[in-house]
Nucleic acid binder design. Structure first.
Length: 428
RNA sequence: GGAGGGAUGGCAGAGCGGCCGAAUGCACCGGUCUUGAAAACCGGCGGGCGAGAGCCCCGUGGGUUCAAAUCCCACUCCCUCCGCCA
């Protein structure tokens, strides 16, 4: 959630910032109107409550003094005021619910530094690494679904039989490769990040904290019977890990990482980029996440990008880093970068990591605060996260990049420790 | 799934429908004392909203009442036992 106070004290600037993200100005105006109305109602309600509370205390005093007549009179007064109070309270509660519902749907304010733009076509490319198109041979221009089928390491047909379209199944060294990628990502970040294995079925409250609910319910798998949701990313449970808690500033930044399966219905993307492993309903990912003070956040954003990028680089893949323009920024995002890996067989740049800074947007929803070591009170933390490594697309780019002209796929050096001595994946 | 017990401040733990945002102990912070520390003593010590007066928060939501931590209902979670089971 955005800070409603920023709409009170800095209305025009906040509205303008939200307009960069294509927020309907009418929604912003409505939020301010509801907030004003709520505060009026709350003030009136609180004044009545104060009177009722005072009268009630006097009733008790009169009773103790044995003055029943005064007590009865005060009681009648209090009852009358109480009736008025409850009407105002009902009205205030209704306005508050409307305001909250609206606020949960208003996106985060983008960073002033986020570049202008409307769509992903406007995202500036910051750098390109390891990419030299002329160096890819014909043997690398085979899409991974063909390589996977030929080597018997990717069994899409049977995955469809088991679970339907857009599910995948790795086999033999292909499964080892998927797991090795996760292990590599965890190992590379274990110097600073605590490894967590969180639950992957979560409550609605958990999914609301990170921003998936209420707006994007259609994108997530929901288990009706138990009212639980399958996580689309480990960001969801890791962010709620500290929900409703107050951290010590000394504990910040807090760095967490988790390997989990991720579940996405991909409701709005039927038919787009769905061949092979490009878009699947279930995949494995290692997520890295941090809680920071506002001051620590920019450096943490850089750190997360560097870590995500470093793993792709260690795998010897061609990739590029792009910054997300305001028009393409997700609802909760303040500033984001994507890492896209080049898959020579598909001849496509595939998004394999999205690293984002959420400012206090998620922290406000999740009520995650810290106690500053200087000064009084509490303040909201900032949350940041990114994929350290998402399996399917990296798997795809990797088998395409490391395919030799004899059809086998070489295991990259970085993954050798996880391959039980195997150096090359060959047809069975 | 069945039966029973429970949920109060960082922790432990009192709490009669009104004098309870809440005793007490521990922890923590400041001070006195001390060469320093400990002990002792004194003081402080939850969070949220609000410009403020003030209001709200005793698991959550609802109800009864002039008045609810306290009574009633529902739900959630925890503990014990039974059943099932990686």
């Amino acid at each position: 959630m955005i800070d409603i106070r920023s709409l009170r004290t800095d209305f025009e600037a906040t509205k303008a910032a939200l307009a960069r993200k294509k927020v309907d100005p009418a929604d912003v105006d409505r939020a301010v109107a509801l907030d004003g109305r709520l505060r009026d109602l709350a003030t009136q309600r609180d004044e009545l409550r104060a009177q009722v509370n005072t009268l009630s205390k006097q009733v008790g005093q009169a009773r103790r003094d044995g003055d029943a007549a005064t007590g009865d009179q005060l009681m009648a007064d209090s009852r009358r005021l109480g009736d008025e109070e409850s009407k105002l309270a009902d009205e205030a509660a209704a306005v508050e619910a409307d305001l909250r519902d609206l606020l949960l749907r208003i996106p985060n304010v983008p960073s002033d530094s986020a570049p202008d733009g409307d769509t992903d076509a406007d995202n500036p490319v910051l750098r390109i690494q390891n990419y030299a198109p002329e160096r890819f041979g014909d043997h690398q221009r085979i899409p991974h679904w063909e390589i996977g089928a030929a080597l018997g390491i990717l069994d899409l047909e049977r995955a469809v039989k088991i679970s339907g379209s857009m599910f995948s199944m790795f086999r033999g060294p292909g499964a080892t490769l998927a797991r090795a990628l996760c292990q590599l990502a965890l190992d590379r970040n274990a110097d600073a990040f605590e490894e967590v294995r969180p639950p992957t079925l979560v409550t609605s409250a958990t999914l609301t904290a990170t921003g998936q609910l209420p707006k994007f319910a259609d994108d997530a798998y929901h288990i009706e019977r138990d009212d639980l949701w399958a996580v689309p990313t480990a960001e969801v449970p890791l962010t709620s890990l500290a929900r409703d808690e107050i951290l010590d500033e000394a504990d910040l930044p807090t760095r967490l990482m988790a390997y989990t399966p991720c579940y996405r219905r991909e409701a709005g993307s039927a038919g787009r980029d769905t061949r092979g492993l490009l878009r699947v309903h279930e995949f494995d990912k290692v997520e890295i996440l941090a809680y920071t003070t506002p001051e620590q956040a920019p450096a943490m954003l850089d750190e997360l990008v560097a870590r995500a990028e470093g793993t792709i680089d260690a795998l010897g893949l061609a990739y590029r880093v792009i910054e997300i323009c305001v028009g393409d920024l997700g609802q909760s995002h303040h500033r984001s970068y994507d890492i896209e890996v080049y898959a020579p067989g598909c001849d496509m740049w595939l998004e394999v990591s999205s690293v984002s800074w959420f400012s206090d947007y998620q922290a406000r929803r999740a009520n995650i605060r810290y106690r500053p070591s200087e000064g009084k009170g509490t303040a909201l933390v900032h949350t940041l996260n990114g994929s350290a490594l998402a399996v399917p697309r990296v798997w795809a780019a990797l088998v395409e990049t490391y395919r030799r002209d004899d059809g086998s796929v070489v295991v990259p050096d970085a993954l050798r420790p996880y391959f039980r001595g195997m150096e090359r994946i060959e047809a069975r």
